[in-house]
């Protein structure tokens, strides 16, 4: 296997030593560009109390290209679709090589606190959020209890 770029080694070490609050990221032993990630639902959000699993992959041209990230835990959120794909500008056209795995995961955590139904990926969820926010939030809470709470 090709040597891992120094930048990725440094980022991994720092994630391991000083993990951001409520976030873990661990590389697979057989593929150091492929991470198992968990993000805790932020307090005060409909995802509070849940621990969400994600997967993250650093493509060959990282950091010129953004990481690829996907939720593995089902989540009722207007910017996350049924396959866990995330609509977030820094994962697409707003990516900059100055950003890191850490900033990406913090941005995803922030997205959980502030769903944005005006830029939806899951259009049915976004519609629900726009038409009846209270009911949509209740649905997000129910999915969190059902899919993101261990045991």
């Amino acid at each position: 296997m090709a040597a891992l770029p120094k930048r990725i080694i440094k980022e991994t070490e720092r994630l391991n030593k000083e993990a951001p609050d409520g976030i873990t990221a661990e590389p697979h032993e057989d593929n150091l560009r492929y991470f198992d990630v968990t993000i805790k639902g932020p307090g005060g959000s409909p995802f509070e109390g849940g621990t969400f699993k994600l997967e993250l992959f650093l493509p060959e041209d990282y950091p010129m290209a953004p990481p690829k990230v996907r939720f593995l835990t089902k989540i009722y959120h207007p910017n996350i679709d049924r396959l866990g794909r995330i609509c977030l500008d820094i994962l697409k056209d707003k990516w900059s090589p100055a950003l890191q795995i850490r900033t990406v995961l913090l941005s995803i955590q922030a997205l959980l606190s502030s769903p944005n139904p005006d830029d939806p990926l899951a259009t049915d969820v976004a519609k629900h959020y726009k038409e009846n926010e209270k009911e949509a939030i209740a649905q997000s809470q129910e999915w969190t209890r059902k899919y993101a709470v261990a045991g």
Binding site: F57, L83, R85
Partner: peptide
Amino acid sequence: MAKVPRNFKLLEELE
């Protein structure tokens, strides 16, 4: 070359 994990390869194929 970086080894693309199964799920991300399948996501690309899906798209």
